[in-house]
Design a protein around this nucleic acid. Structure first.
Lengths: 154, 154
DNA sequence: CAACTTCTGGACCTTTATGTCCATAATAGC
DNA sequence: GCTATTATGGACATAAAGGTCCAGAAGTTG
């Protein structure tokens, strides 16, 4: 559905949205269970896409560059793993495989629906809409690993 | 959206659905512009999934194992590149990252929508529903590469 | 300035997806 | 049985995604 990289980016952004102030790469990696070295690459991409602001030195780290309600899932996914659209039949120039058009029309429709759904969800919604109150009250630290959440079954 | 492999499998199946009798691997590869050697692997997967029947020797090749109206896009995609569902928060056992649940709920919803759309489209629909009559009348041979189809813009 | 923290960016490695090649097995026609 | 045809399956090659590591730049504190 989405790449591992996009999944990681989303986790990091959700975490940032829930956190007051800056979070260091190490902190984000620990909480979101993303490999630290790899996360740093992803954060760089998010910074280049102007979704987060980065600050070096003590007290530094990453913060959202905009309000959580102004950042959609689609923004995040596109920053690290751009959704590519089918613009013409992939069967070479003269489209001999023109007979495949109805097929690609379906695929295109499906991907546009996903895109639309992603565009409609903001970070703000994701952190507000907790279906299981216990879940959100879990402290945002690696230690919380010990805390079970029976409702987390999606 | 879907893997290259799934794209290739769909092209091959659409071609088979349009063709009377068996088509050899070479023929399918030429028309669908899929690398021959790679296509043979994919056809093997489709055969194992009982979506096509294979026959060796002269006059042999591949044929649909069921009627075109009984084969959905989802059947084909699942045969070569199974859609994996999110069943629980991917943040390890005790779901410390429980705060990500709303996120994964969205992702899960999106993938289920795609799955549903794919399940509803059959091969029969794909080959009937030609929005551009000219397209479907194009001969199903590599030579047709020379035939342009202006309506093929998806 | 010195020491410490944190991001940056490049080199490199591993795994997975994609793609190639060929010997072999099954089938049909003669 | 012989030959031509066609799928099968394994070995191998290449490309892309995912992941690791570390030197160095930029920032903070004292």
């Amino acid at each position: 559905m989405i790449s591992q990289t996009a999944e990681y980016a989303l986790r990091a952004m959700v975490f940032l949205a829930m956190k007051d102030g800056a979070a260091t790469g190490q902190e984000i990696a620990a909480v979101t269970l993303v490999p630290g070295g790899y996360l740093s690459k992803i954060m760089q991409q998010l910074a280049k896409a102007k979704l987060v602001h980065s600050q070096r030195g003590i007290g530094g780290g990453f913060t959202l560059a905009r309000q959580a309600k102004e950042i959609s899932i689609l923004d995040i996914v596109n920053a690290v793993d751009p959704i590519k659209h089918i613009r013409s039949c992939p069967l070479d120039i003269k489209s001999h495989g023109v007979n495949l058009c109805p097929l690609h029309a379906r695929l295109s429709t499906a991907s546009r629906q996903v895109e639309e759904a992603f565009a409609k969800s903001t970070l703000a919604e994701l952190i507000t809409e907790s279906r299981s109150p216990d879940c959100l009250s879990v402290p945002l630290t690696p230690r919380a690993l010990d805390t079970a959440c029976g409702d987390c079954s999606l």
